[in-house]
């Protein structure tokens, strides 16, 4: 049912909006057409959506790129083509992190918020790394929307969705039909706004150690430690990444 908030226009702003923010769609926010984008729930030009996204990524704390399965795995030529412009974007954002969303399962026993983000509790990764601007890219739309609402509810993160399909109302900024070309265009816009005088929050160039690359550099080692497998003699590789004590995700 469409629960319109008649009169007032619903704005999709960085949170924390509190418990269960509504899906922006049911508040009347519509998806953009090709050539357009969404900014705070308003239809704007693609350029304007990208500019605001660029400024957020350059000026807010701990900007992070969250590549999903459709970005991480080169399963089609289309995805493989997106890699180079993705890293071009990363290099234009001083101090950016890359933290993947490799899959959507509730990871057992708990996620390592430095290594991954997960749609079941994306806020944990945002909080832990104090991320105030992020880009979701290559995440299947259902899981992106689930994620974006939880982030808006519990964090002050400025969310950006570069979507290969129709775009995302629940992001603060979103552009539809994003392929390699539009990613490259985003890199260009990052350069442009810097040239126009937007001063990046962080000095220097590019990507800081992040994701598993960071965990590994800190001496993170694989190996399950909770003894879930008593028949552990079978395994030499061990299981998953290093895990600290935390919420048991799978308690029945």
């Amino acid at each position: 049912m469409v629960m319109m908030n008649r009169g007032a226009v619903y704005e999709v702003l960085p949170g924390p909006e509190g418990i269960l923010p509504p899906a922006a769609t049911v508040m009347g926010v519509c998806l953009p057409e090709e050539g357009e984008g969404l900014l705070h729930g308003r239809i704007v030009s693609e350029e304007e959506a990208m500019r605001s996204a660029a400024i957020a990524m350059l000026t807010r704390r701990n900007p992070t790129l969250f590549p999903g399965p459709l970005m991480l795995w080169g399963w089609t030529e289309h995805t493989r083509d997106k890699s180079a412009p993705f890293f071009e974007v990363a290099r234009e954002i001083p101090g950016v992190r890359i933290i993947p969303m490799p899959d959507y399962r509730p990871i057992y026993p708990k996620i390592d918020p430095e290594a991954v983000i997960n749609p079941c509790h994306p806020n944990l990764t945002i909080w832990h790394n104090k991320i105030e601007a992020c880009v979701l890219i290559g995440v299947h739309c259902h899981f992106a929307n689930v994620t974006l609402k939880i982030i808006r509810g519990g964090t002050n993160c400025f969310t950006i969705a570069l979507c290969a399909e129709a775009g995302h109302e629940d992001a603060m900024s979103s552009v539809p039909n994003v392929g390699a070309e539009k990613i490259a265009r985003f890199a260009e816009i990052l350069r442009l706004v810097k040239k126009e005088g937007v001063k990046p929050l962080y000095a220097g160039q590019g990507i800081i150690p992040s994701g598993w690359a960071q965990v590994a550099s800190l001496g993170g080692s694989a190996g399950g430690q909770n003894g879930a497998f008593v028949d552990n003699g079978l395994s030499h590789h061990g299981l998953s990444h290093d895990l600290e004590h935390g919420l048991d995700e799978n308690e029945e």
Partner: peptide, 13 residues
């Protein structure tokens, strides 16, 4: 992808 698809997340906890 992903190879590890658990689309219907078993989150009945």
């Amino acid at each position: 992808p992903p190879i590890r698809i658990s689309r219907d997340a078993p989150i009945q906890k």
